[in-house]
Design a protein around this nucleic acid. Structure first.
Lengths: 107, 107
DNA sequence: TGAAACAGGTTTTCTATGCAAACCTGTTTC
DNA sequence: GAAACAGGTTTGCATAGAAAACCTGTTTCA
């Protein structure tokens, strides 16, 4: 009996940090692995290096991921892992999306 | 057996015209009514006039809605209706979202 | 009756964001 | 040992969204 139409105002409350497609893609990948290398992330998302770098910095600033810099032999390599906050934000975002999707088979 | 993880690259293909929350809210409202008055739309979305005006102009430019100007008595009033293209775009967008949502109850 | 407030929008301005290109540091290759 | 390359970061530019200013016509009410 509950009206399942999403409140239009709720849509405006979507977490922009997650809503941006590039960052959503990044978080989605990070959510399914312990730790992800920069280059792998770049390949799988198709983002340019510069782009990827700036988005991960924003996500780090938001506390949604942490950057791990290690040396492989003597060359430096960057990896990322999602934080608990990041995971929570992603889950919350998914819930918001579910809320705004019609139940299926709308006219 | 099908892996239900969304392809990260697919996320980057989301239709930006619809993805923007303000416009998604507008289209969502328009999709559930024949014709919607400017002021009603403003109240239900919570957008400012200027904002609403510019977003509806963009949606009109994209062919997703049409603007209807009528006189009520002697004062002019603006309404909108979603076009077939707009409806199709919204549906397609919903499908994309469904594709990227995890099946529920992810760890 | 006429100045002031108001309704209904549109246009302009400001700011921030995403994207691409340029740049930097250290390593191999030839 | 110069040149190409890997792995990122910083800079610069173009666009988009939000807020503010503006415009036209209409009531209000002193």
């Amino acid at each position: 009996m509950a009206k399942t139409e999403p409140s239009p105002k709720a849509i405006l409350d979507l977490d922009r940090m997650v809503h941006e497609p590039a960052r959503l893609a990044i978080l989605t990948v990070l959510a399914s692995a312990e730790e992800v290398a920069f280059l792998f992330l770049q390949r799988v998302t198709g983002l340019s290096k510069g782009n990827l770098s700036s988005h991960t910095q924003k996500l780090e600033g938001a506390g949604y991921l942490e950057t791990v810099k290690v040396f492989q032999g003597r060359i430096p390599a960057t990896s990322f892992r999602i934080t608990e906050d990041g995971r929570a934000a992603l889950r919350a975002y998914h819930q918001q999306l579910r809320g705004l999707l019609p139940k299926e088979g709308k006219p």
